[in-house]
Structures are given as C-alpha cells and as structure tokens.
Design a protein around this nucleic acid. Sequence first.
DNA 1: GACAAGATTCGCT
DNA 2: GCGAATCTTGTCG
Length: 199
Amino acid sequence: MSKLPLSYYQQEDVVFLARDLIGKKLCTCINGEFTAGIITETEAYRGWGDRACHAHSGRRTPRTEIMYQNGGVAYMYLCYGIHHLFNIITNKDESADAVLVRAIEPTDGIDTMLRRRNMDEIKPRLSSGPGSMSKSLGLELIHYGEPLDGEMIWVEKVSEKLHSDKIIATTRIGIDYAGEDALLPWRFYKADSAFVSKR
DNA sequence: GACAAGATTCGCT
DNA sequence: GCGAATCTTGTCG
C-alpha cells in the first residue's frame, strides 16, 4: 500500500522515530512468502554519545559499517550465536543511529510465521522479543544492508491513529554494560498490547 | 590465529 | 528462576 519512503528514515531524531514507528506495519516478503505485523516495541540507539550502540562515538568495524549509511536500510546481526536481530538505520550519512524492532503483533501470513517458529497456535511468544520477531518474519543475517523501500522488507503507514498516551517510554533491555546510558528512556512499547517482551 | 563475550530464548527443576 | 545453547565479531598476541 503506502510504503514509507527512505526520506522518512532519514529524519534526524532517532528517539522520535523509535516512538513514531510504534503502531506502523512491518512487512516482509521472503522466498515469495508475505508476512507482516504491527510494531509494538522498539528501542533507539544513537551513534554519538550512546555507549549501548555498536557504533558509538565513531566506532567503525566491518559489522557496523552499514550504520554509517543514509537511513532506510536494515542492520542485521547475530546475538548469542542464535538470534538474528533486526534494526532500522536512521538519520543521514555518518550519524550511525538505529532503531531496534523488538516485537510485533502478527497481522498477515500467520501460518507462515507459525511454521517458522515451530508453533501451532498464536501466543505472544510468537513474535515478542527481538530474536523471536526476526525469526517469525524470516529475517536473517543475509538481509544485512537490505533497503527498506524494496520488495523484501518495508514499513507501511496504518490508517488508525495511535494516541500518544498509549505508548510507554522506559529503559532499554540487556545493555547493562553501557553504564549510565543504560538508564536512558529509549525503549517504547504499546501499552495495550500483549505482544511486548517483558522483564 | 585464538579466545572471550554478547541489544536472547527456551526448557527444565 | 536458572543455565545451556551456539557462532559471529572484535580484540589481542
């Protein structure tokens, strides 16, 4: 329908974008199988001055290289050797900002998602939590660098508007190593959704 | 070239 | 609630 254009991702405020992405629809079409869901949980990572970010303070490695591109591409990486995490690169060249998508509420291709997760009924566990979410949508390392206005991965605007008081802001998860930056309220989730990772 | 650690999840006690 | 699974990446020698 209305695929968000690359210019959307290139807005400067990654924290605003992380919040704005809640309630939008994340779609993938992988191996001809279409799956999609409403984004219910995100986290913002800022390249400069955020120790939790892989590319903090200009840190540059082959893995983080993609983060220095213009916004609107996927940054995939493997965590704990098992989980493929999906991030959206935002902002302009050299900024290294990103939004981690942590959970969605399935809307399309649910049979496919269940099969990918080896489950036989819908539970929040199906697509809540960054590893599970990626797996249900079929996202893997090979999608590293994939543009978000292409045929494989994209985000759509949804007609229904989300009231701002339905979005909760809190601290990010699993980044204790980041010291004081772990306290920043850069995790956002939809208050009334069961599809949110807890802890 | 080797090694430690990680933006997690699942199953078992 | 606790701990294993599992492998890429970055750092150090």
